[in-house]
Design a protein around this nucleic acid. Structure first.
Length: 231
DNA sequence: GCCCAGGGGGCTC
DNA sequence: GAGCCCCATGGG
């Protein structure tokens, strides 16, 4: 771990934490709900997801058994608010059947695997890509993997750490090479990024004046003078 | 009416 | 592997 990079990353973390406090992520009652939320939130705002999760709760099918036994059309209807609902209904079903058929429906059993074995297995399932897999590993299985997303890219490109075309794994490796592997730190760091991500962009729009990272935009060499005025 | 939002699969070359 | 299209709701 490079000490100077670690200190920069921790400085950013502390600025965000000082402003927002703990964000208590992930917003869910159970780890199964975390998993369902991770799949449903793909390319959609969280508000749309809460509608769907409430529907599943009200219908009393927010469980592996419940999803497995649910009628396909009914399931689609309940999660309609999350966009791409037909695909997502299939994703939920396939995840639940995987755990049911291979782990006797037992998430403890499923999550007892080595972290990277678990990651490979999740990635093999339909509809689970890197971000979704990592969210499940960190927030449901409580194993120390760093979750990156579009907001992480946006902010750290703007701050000058990454080029815009950086790959998911490269971003993830950067954080994991330069931060202590700690579930609580990884949990809160990603949550903090999420909390300010919507205020950031690559330079097209002004950043939020309230954001504690504004004065760090000077790290971003590719932002023009004109755009820098936004900071 | 239009634009955009925290992704992933599948196809092509 | 990169580039492209598909999926198809809800809020501002």
């Amino acid at each position: 771990m490079k000490k100077d990079i670690n200190e920069k990353l921790m400085h950013i973390y502390r600025l965000l934490y000082a402003k927002n406090g703990s964000r208590n992520w992930w917003p869910a009652d159970t780890r199964f709900e975390v998993i369902i939320g991770a799949i449903l939130t793909q390319f959609v705002s969280w508000k749309n997801v809460t509608t769907a999760i409430d529907n599943l709760k009200n219908e009393n099918i927010l469980s592996i058994k419940g999803i497995c036994e649910a009628d396909d059309g009914r399931l689609e209807e309940l999660i309609r608010s999350t966009r791409f609902y037909k695909q997502k209904a299939r994703r939920l079903k396939e995840f639940c059947f995987h755990v049911k058929n291979n782990y006797n429906g037992d998430l403890d059993f499923f999550f007892s695997k080595d972290m990277y074995d678990l990651r490979r297995e999740l990635l093999s399932l339909y509809g689970i890509g890197e971000e979704t897999a990592d969210s499940i590993i960190l927030y449901a299985a409580q194993k120390p993997i760093f979750v990156v997303d579009a907001y992480t890219r946006r902010i750290f490109v703007r701050l000058g750490f990454f080029k815009e075309e950086i790959k998911y794994r490269e971003m993830q490796e950067f954080f994991m090479e330069n931060l202590e592997h700690d579930v609580q730190l990884f949990n809160e760091y990603h949550a903090q990024i999420d909390g300010v991500g919507s205020h950031y962009c690559y330079g097209k729009k002004p950043v939020c004046n309230e954001c504690p990272l504004d004065n760090m935009c000077l790290f971003e060499k590719r932002i023009t003078k004109e755009k820098r005025k936004d900071c």
